[in-house]
Each structure stands twice: as structure tokens, then as C-alpha cells.
Amino acid sequence: MMLNWFQHIGAFTFDILANTGRASIFLLQVILGIKETLFRPQLLIRELYSVGVLSLLIIIFSAIFVGMVLSLLGYVTLVDFGAESSLGVLVSLSLIRELGPVLTALLFSGRAGSALTAEIGLMKATEQLASMEMMAVDPIRRIITPRFLAGCISLPLLTVIFMSLGIYAGYLVGSIWLGVDEGSFWSQMQSKVEFGHDVINGFIKSIVFGFVVTWIAVYQGYNAIPTSEGVSRATTNSVVYSALAVLALDFILTAVMFV
């Protein structure tokens, strides 16, 4: 009984190792195709559209609402200490260091990551990838690499849009509705938020998240079992693994950057 249990754990560990190995080899193949993709910007632009532009709406909406809620909650807490002039600092630092990168990555994996997985998985299920191989076209370079690059470029851009819109929405709620002094909102923010430290580190977070979320999405799609059930499971996995990876990495990055 005990032995059986150990065997189980052993097999599970080897499964994880094999999967990590396969995903890394896959990543290497994808990266080797980057040079080719850069020579064909048309492919990249098309993917930037479906990955980035189509995610813009949900990012804009979420940013505005998150910024407004942060401002409201922050005001309620700060006003007890007579420190409501620090509202700008609170809103901007939470958005730049934490909420901007993390929320954008989670929304992105739900909107664009899942779509990427489903699209690639379906292309595999309908033998489109195999037929490309037989037409002597490498499906990794032709299909995966442009999507991967587009994801890596889109998420950081979406994140800075999320951050600045969120801060602006927080400012509107704070100064127009709650009556925080406009001057102290901005000046306190500017003196406490450091570009080289806070903004750059938040941006680095978003680059890491973009890389990981897109990698998971395209890998899950490319490795999907070529049936309708397999594709739907791959899509779910893509979102779940992305969320777990983003949250775990966020903890590590925050510990390294801001402590």
C-alpha cells in the first residue's frame, strides 16, 4: 500500500519533469523562429490585433473600475488619520506595484490566452498544423511564434494602459467626488512614486507575466489532445495554470523587488 503510494508520487514527479522538459524544448523552437517572424511583420501585426487590440476594451473597463474602487476604499481608511492627501500615493503605488501587472495578466489570460489555446488546439484537431508540416511550412514558426511574440509585446502595453487609466479614474473619484485636494493628490504621488524603482519594476513584472502567460497558452494549444474534449480541457488548463503562475511569480518578484 505504502509502496504503491510512493510509486504514484514518483510517476507524478516524472510526469512533471517530462512536461517541463517538453515545454522548454517547445519554447526554444518558438524562440528560434523569432528572426523569421520579424522579417514578416504582416503576420505579427495580425496577431497583435487579435491578441492586443481585442483585449483593449476589457482592460480599459477593468482599469477604470479598479481605480475608482481603490480611491473610495483608500479614502475611507486614510481620512481617519487625516491623511487623505496621501490618497494619490496609495492608489498609484497599489496599481503600479501590484494590481496593474497582476490584474492585467489575469484578464489577459482569460481573454487572449484562452483564445490562443483554443485556436491552436482546433488547428491541431483539424489537422491544419499537420498539413502545414507536409507543405514544408513549419507550423511553430508560421503559427506559434507570431502569436507568442504578439502576447509578449501586448501584455506590457496593456499593463501601462491599465495603470495610467486606473490612476486617472482614482483621481477623478478622489478629487471630484470625495473632495481631496487636487494639488496634493498629484504632488504627493509624484514625490513618492519613483520611476526607476516602482514604475520600472511594475513594468518588468508585466514583461515576465506576458512571457509566461503566452508561453502557457501556446504550449497548451500545441499540446492539446486533438479532440473537442481535449481542446476544451487545454483551454481550461491554459487559464488555470496562467493564473497560478502569475500569482506565484508575483509573490517572488514582489519579494525581490519591493522588500
Binding site: M123, T126, E127, Q128, A130, S131, M132, M134, M135, A136, V137, R142
Partner: peptide, 27 residues
């Protein structure tokens, strides 16, 4: 080599004409 797949395996986001141009344009 040319291969005819059972399902046809046409690229669903391209029309008939573009499907046939695909291997030519790629190479």
C-alpha cells in the same frame, strides 16, 4: 511531397484561393 488529408485540413481563416496560394507564397 504532397499529402491529401482525410479531413482536407484546409486553413479555416483563408478562402479557397488563398488556401492554394499558401504553400506557393510560403516558399
Amino acid at each position: 511531397m504532397g499529402m491529401l488529408f482525410q479531413s482536407g485540413a484546409l486553413l479555416t481563416d483563408l478562402n479557397v484561393f488563398e488556401n492554394i496560394t499558401f504553400p506557393i507564397r510560403e516558399h
